[in-house]
Design a protein around this nucleic acid. Structure first.
Lengths: 151, 151
DNA sequence: CAAAAACCAAGTGGAATAGTAGGAATTAAA
DNA sequence: TTTAATTCCTACTATTCCACTTGGTTTTTG
C-alpha cells in the first residue's frame, strides 16, 4: 500500500514550484537538483502534470515550469490523481466505474475499501500547496526533502 | 495506491472462515471455490496467515483451517499487515524504522504521508471480522464477494 | 549562432504480482 | 491397512509496473 515515486516526486516538485510561485518559470534542472531526483525521470512526470493543467511551461532559454494555478487552488489529491491514477485501494471502488462490480450491494469487503478510499481522499484533498508552504515556514527551514537519495 | 490481491483475497478468505467460526475446520478448497480464487495461490497466502497465528490448521482428511482467535479479536488491519506489510504510503513513514529519514523533522511531504498512514490504519483497525459478519447480515445475503473472477 | 531549456519516444534492468506445477507429509475413514 | 482428503513446501513462470536512461528535436533568449 505504497504510493510510488511518481506521486512522491511529483508532490515534491510541485512544492518547489509553489515556493517559487510568482517569481517566473523555474527550470526543471533546479527542481531536480533541489530534490536529488533524476531530471530526465522528473521530466516525464512533470509532462503529465503539464497536460493536466496543474503546471505551465515556458520553452526556450530562461524558460522552465510554473504552477498552473495559485498554491491555494492545488491540492495534494489533485497531484496524486494525475500521477498515480484514481485514489482507490481496490479496482471495485474506483469512483467512475463503480458498477464494475456486479455484487456491489451484497459485498462486505467492498465497504472496507470504500471507507479507506474516502478517508485517504479526505486527507489528500484537504491539504493544498499553500497549506504545505505554511507548514514549511512553521518548521524551521522546512523543505519537502525526505531521504534525498532513495525517497 | 492499490492493495494487491494478496490482501484482498486474504481478507475474503478470513471472512469466510469467520462465517464458519465454531463449526470446525474448513478445507481451503471450499474457501477458494466460494470466492472464485485459485486454491494453490490462496494456499500461499493462508500459509502466511497461519504463521502469524491469525489462522490455525488441521492436517489430514477432514482437516482445514480455522480462525486463530474469535472474530471480535481479529481486525482487517491485522490481516492486511500480514499479507501486505506495514501500512504506510511511503517508506519514510513505516512505523518501525521512522528514523530512516534524516530530514524527518524538516520534511513537509512526510507530514502528508503520516496523516494518510494514520487515517488508513484507523479505518482498518476499527473493523473486526465480527463487525463484517454483522454488516453481512444487515445486507441481505451478504457475501464478501466482489467481482468473483478478477477481484 | 550558441546555449538553455522544454518536449518526445523508445529502450532497459529489476522487482513484484499472480499465479502454476509437482510433490511430500499427515490424518480420518473405509 | 489402504485410500482419499487435506495441509505443507519449494520452485518455476509470465506479465506488468517501476524507475529510470538514452538520444534525440524544437523553441527561445542573448
Amino acid at each position: 500500500m505504497r504510493f510510488s515515486t511518481r506521486g512522491r516526486y511529483g508532490l515534491k516538485a510541485m512544492f518547489v514550484l509553489a515556493q517559487h510561485y510568482g517569481k517566473g518559470p523555474l527550470p526543471l534542472k533546479q527542481v531536480a537538483e533541489n530534490q536529488g531526483i533524476s531530471e530526465a525521470y522528473l521530466e516525464q512526470l512533470i509532462g503529465e502534470l503539464r497536460k493536466s493543467g496543474l503546471v505551465k511551461s515556458v520553452r526556450g532559454a530562461q524558460g522552465g515550469y510554473l504552477l498552473g494555478k495559485a498554491p491555494e487552488k492545488i491540492t495534494v489529491g489533485d497531484i496524486i490523481r494525475v500521477l498515480e491514477g484514481p485514489i482507490a485501494p481496490a479496482d471495485c471502488v474506483v469512483a467512475d466505474d463503480a458498477d464494475i462490480c456486479d455484487q456491489a450491494d451484497r459485498c462486505v469487503t467492498r465497504l472496507i475499501w470504500e471507507r479507506v478510499r474516502d478517508s485517504v481522499s479526505e486527507v489528500l484533498d484537504s491539504v493544498s500547496l499553500a497549506d504545505m508552504l505554511a507548514q514549511a515556514s512553521e518548521i524551521q527551514g522546512g523543505s519537502p526533502q525526505c531521504q534525498p537519495i532513495s525517497q
